[in-house]
Design a protein around this nucleic acid. Structure first.
Lengths: 150, 150
DNA sequence: GAATATAGTTAGCTATGCTAACTAAATCGC
DNA sequence: GCGATTTAGTTAGCATAGCTAACTATATTC
């Protein structure tokens, strides 16, 4: 194993933690993508749609911020969503802004995908004991905060 | 909020957990991708490279399985890695198979990326108390098992 | 009212997923 | 031992998703 100089001291464990989270995130998404593909909606579209469904209507720029992508990227994601009839663009008083709203169809599709995901994950969780399930639930609560701070 | 019929009973909490993990994974990767881009190596390439560096040499098919992608996808990822001089293709006794080996340069680049990631994540973790840091470390151990079972 | 700032879109590049169809090598069956 | 089948990998072609640069249109500022 190559010897690498470290600036920080406490990094041996954090290094492993970071790598495991990174790797787990990659593989988790790959697994869930298989199920998500059944909806015919891409992962980025699904994630953006979920913000609109659970967080309510907002402008394209706000949605781009929430999803941590650039406006042109979100513009194209939204184009796909509107073409699929999952999101509606509404005009606002400010003629430059749009208000993006999830349609009934979009809301329904999102809930169905959510159901498929939890079925997949419930399968995996069934093999864990209750203590581990509880810890996983804690992690799910903790992660958004951490991600927000990166 | 739309009313959706549920097949399973215990899903209320699992539903939330699944969704939060999904969302956290998406946003974690988006954040870390910013740092990973400094290496000039894409996320899929980086992940495949990490398997070769930490798991040792293997064939393209094995690598595709490990990364849960189809052979053609892995074939292209490996092409990028070899073009960048990070991975070497070696012949085996079986003329159909290739042995993929991380080069010294590839190993070095991976370690540098790992360092950048942990610096980003250490920053985020600094805002957590030690109890939470410990729990996070435990969960990072748990995640790969779970992902494997999905 | 002209200059500037802000919100989104369009164009064009790269990377990464997929399936279908192909090549080449190994193995099986007779 | 030789044709048929199986296996490993590649190539071609399509879609999604990231980005920057450059553009349009609307608001705001001076």
């Amino acid at each position: 194993m190559t010897d690498v100089k470290q600036k920080s001291v406490a990094s041996a464990e954090l290094l492993q933690t970071a790598d495991k989270l990174h790797s787990a995130a990659i593989h988790l998404l790959r697994r869930l993508r298989v199920r998500d593909r059944e909806s015919g909606v891409g992962p980025a579209q699904l994630s953006a749609l979920s913000v609109l469904v659970f967080g309510g209507p907002r402008s394209l720029g706000e949605l781009a911020d929430a999803e941590q992508v650039r406006p042109p990227t979100m513009s194209r994601i939204v184009s796909g969503l509107t073409a699929a009839g999952l999101v509606r663009r509404e005009a606002t008083e400010d003629g430059r802004r749009v208000r993006l709203v999830a349609t009934v169809k979009g809301t329904k599709i999102l809930w169905e995908g959510r159901k498929r995901r939890v079925e997949s994950l419930a399968n995996a969780l069934a093999a864990l004991d209750e203590t581990e399930q509880g810890r996983l639930r804690e992690l799910a609560e903790l992660l958004p905060e951490i991600v927000h701070k990166i």
